[in-house]
Design a protein around this nucleic acid. Structure first.
Lengths: 199, 199
DNA sequence: TAACAAGTTGACCGCCAGGTCCGGTTATCG
DNA sequence: CGATAACCGGACCTGGCGGTCAACTTGTTA
């Protein structure tokens, strides 16, 4: 973690503009948004983008890393909650709400092969595992679901909602509620397949 | 529906090879599979692809249309079932199983602006609506979910499963079961948002 | 304020995927 | 069997993308 020289004032401003613009553009058009569009939206030249991030994947990784760390922090904080079931639900709500609009499923796909992202992801997975273990121990969720299940399902509300043209921005809450009802112990039917072991 | 001239023998064979290869390639690599790869897989030239389908989107539309119609037929057949809840579950299982492996969420995105696809989609939606109405009338699913909800959720099991590297090909069944448990009346909690009206 | 390093920019490059086209091939029918 | 039209194929075109670079601008610091 060598911080080298401090960034020049305008460079720091441009970097912030760039990150914001990239997040917006990715939220609207998915990861295939072009670097030129991002630069235009940020009001900077395309070359500047590549000065801050040598590769488009590096840009994506930076945003993804930020989101993962933010989510992990929230999950960590929720570990102190009294109601473990409500804590898990709130975590899932935050996760769904954070990445608005389009896909940007930063859980698996994006920014792999970048060790920092992989490490952050692993940390987040561990936090989720703990959150789920507590909820299960308290009987807030059914005994046969695992942390991996929750990790996989946590993207679903946004995905499901993503294809509705004029949806309310809170529509994801409806599907999170339905899916979470499926995670509850009441009225649970046996599951036909074991959970995956590797992610 | 003017059938014009019957296709020449080899042309019909190539068309069949092409459709099969395209379906496989799309299943493996998603819609961004290249036309060149599809042609190579089918053992035909790239020009032949564009002879049968003027545009890649036309190719996609053809496959999507076929899938939609097949699904609609299955749904129609399941309307005769005694157990409306089991019928709905089987329909969702068929839908999830049909489009194996990767995304290919042919419900909304793909092949829009093509009227035939839109019409077929509308027909499928109506069939699903009927299926859901019966299940709800029989108390097999909770009263506050609509056909639109089911339409949106039906892609989720495959999506969720798609990002697991070495998943069992039947893993989607696990998540379909969880989500379907969320649709059941037992232990249902009130939903925070109304369903979308337009699709 | 002067001088330099850091930052910026947009023209430019190579690549790749969709789409075109025309010379060669082949099924079909009288 | 032979003529013809339908069909095939791959070289070619084109546009848009990620990424590079050298000339220019600007924040910084002594």
């Amino acid at each position: 973690m060598t911080t080298s020289r401090p960034l020049r004032a305008d460079a720091a401003r441009n970097r912030a503009l760039l990150l914001a613009a990239a997040a917006d553009e990715f939220a609207e058009h998915g990861l295939e948004a072009s670097v030129a569009d991002i630069a235009r939206r940020a009001g900077i030249g395309k070359g500047t983008v590549f000065r801050h991030f040598p590769t488009k994947d590096d840009l994506i990784a930076a945003i993804v890393l930020d989101r993962i760390q933010a989510l992990t922090a929230i999950g960590e904080r929720l570990l102190d909650s009294d109601d473990s079931g409500a804590a898990l639900l709130e975590f899932l709500a935050t996760a769904a709400h954070q990445r608005q609009q389009r896909d940007l499923s930063f859980l698996q796909e994006a920014g792999d092969t970048r060790p920092e992202v992989g490490n952050a992801r692993t940390a987040m997975f561990q936090t989720i595992d703990t959150l789920v273990d507590r909820a299960r121990a308290d009987g807030a969720i059914r005994p046969d679901v695992t942390g991996t299940d929750v990790i996989l399902l946590m993207c679903a509300p946004n995905y499901v909602t993503g294809s509705v043209p004029d949806a309310s921005p809170d529509l994801w809450q409806r599907y999170l509620a339905i899916i979470f009802d499926g995670l509850r112990p009441e009225g649970a039917h046996p599951l036909p397949q074991p959970p995956p072991d590797t992610l």
